[in-house]
């Protein structure tokens, strides 16, 4: 990074009370305070949010694309974790 380029931040916005913050994009800012202000001006010009999180992109750790199989495929076979796996006689209510 050059001396004049600001770090990259990821922006998460809660669109309304009761919903999760959701990733909406990224921007550049010199620090967290201005990252929040920039996020407000860039991503909530049309009342898209009531709360903003910013995280410096370099602080995000992600799963490795080469490990997708061992990370996620094992759960595909555990179908007993889903309610549809179980049969319940017709007429049983509230279940």
């Amino acid at each position: 990074m050059s001396n004049t380029e600001w770090p990259l931040w990821e922006v998460f916005i809660r669109s309304k009370q009761g919903l999760n913050h959701k990733h909406v994009g990224s921007l550049r800012a010199p620090d967290a305070t201005l990252a929040l202000e920039n996020a407000r001006d860039v991503y909530t010009r049309r009342s898209e949010g009531i709360s903003i999180w910013v995280v410096e992109s370099s602080n995000i750790h992600a799963t490795d694309i080469d490990e997708v199989a061992e990370f996620f495929e094992p759960s595909d076979t555990k179908i007993y974790r889903h309610p549809t796996f179980y049969e319940v006689p017709e007429g049983v209510k509230h279940m």
Binding site: E5, P30, L34
Partner: peptide, 12 residues
């Protein structure tokens, strides 16, 4: 804008 961006980085 160069000095502006530089200043903000220096401050941070």
């Amino acid at each position: 804008g160069l000095w502006v961006r530089e200043a903000a980085n220096a401050y941070a």
